[in-house]
Amino acid sequence: MSKPRIGIVIGSTREGRFADKPAQWIYEIAKARGDIEVELVDLRDFPLPFFDEPASPAWAPSKSDVAQKWQKKVASFDGFVFTAAEYNRAPTAVLKNAFDYAYTEWNKKAVGFVGYGGVGGARAVEHLRLIAIETQMAPVRAGVHIVWADMLPVMQGQKKLEELEHLKQSADDMLNQVAWWSKALLAARKAEAEEASIAA
């Protein structure tokens, strides 16, 4: 069976964002594994307007060209890891918006999170787990939470994420679970598609 393709999505688009550092860090760790293929996905490359379609993509095709491009990109992956900044106890608006611009493309795929902020982005990640469940994803238990005490020296250039061994352990745990569930769900989706083709 082919290796699952995992999209590592940078969940912030603002100027001067911190998100590039954890995204590149988790990408390098994931890329070094032999059991998955990974791609870094930047939401800046998909300038989605705030959701303004006539209906959810769960019910009707999107009209926006950039929305269709985004849906095609989402569909190309078997699992995901999102960087998750926390703004006012919630994820970024741009990341929630990106979730809303797809639906079936998310279904039956694993997802993990790399949160950062005052409490390691934990409250934003909790929101995202609920959103993931509503879009029929399988959020994994393990996550990475970069607390302010770790984040600040990295922002100031005094440390690198690669030097923080406790975060590496969390990253490995999360990626192990994302890889396992992505493989299992990929096999299940293939079996389901084969059954559907036989029935047709």
Rank of each mutant, 00 (worst) to 15 (best):
A75V: 01
A75Q: 06
A75D: 07
A75T: 00
A75L: 01
S76P: 00
F77I: 03
F77Q: 00
D78G: 01
D78W: 02
V81C: 13
V81K: 12
F82M: 10
T83D: 04
A84W: 05
A84P: 10
A84R: 09
A85I: 06
E86A: 10
Y87S: 03
N88P: 01
A90C: 09
A90P: 01
V94A: 03
V94T: 14
V94G: 00
L95A: 07
L95T: 09
K96V: 11
K96F: 00
N97A: 03
N97T: 06
A98I: 11
A98F: 11
F99I: 09
D100F: 12
D100R: 07
A102L: 10
A102P: 13
A102E: 14
A102M: 12
A102D: 14
Y103Q: 09
T104R: 15
T104D: 13
T104L: 10
E105W: 04
E105S: 10
E105H: 11
E105Q: 14
N107M: 11
N107Y: 13
N107Q: 14
N107D: 07
K109Q: 12
K109C: 08
G112K: 13
F113N: 13
V114S: 14
V114R: 09
G115C: 02
G115Y: 03
Y116R: 08
Y116N: 01
Y116S: 06
G117L: 08
G121P: 05
G121Q: 02
A124W: 05
V125N: 05
H127G: 00
R129D: 01
R129T: 03
I131M: 08
A132Q: 09
A132V: 12
I133R: 15
I133G: 14
I133Q: 15
E134V: 01
E134A: 14
Q136H: 10
Q136R: 13
M137A: 06
M137K: 08
P139S: 14
P139L: 09
R141V: 13
R141C: 09
R141Q: 11
R141M: 12
A142N: 15
A142S: 15
G143D: 10
G143N: 13
G143S: 15
G143P: 06
V144E: 04
V144P: 05
V144G: 02
H145C: 01
I146H: 03
W148I: 08
W148T: 07
W148F: 12
A149L: 01
A149G: 03
A149T: 12
D150S: 09
M151K: 10
L152E: 05
V154I: 08
V154W: 04
V154H: 06
M155C: 04
Q156R: 15
Q156L: 15
G157F: 10
G157P: 11
G157T: 12
G157R: 12
K159P: 00
K160P: 00
K160C: 00
L161C: 04
L161G: 03
L161W: 02
L161S: 04
E162G: 13
E162L: 06
E162M: 03
E163N: 12
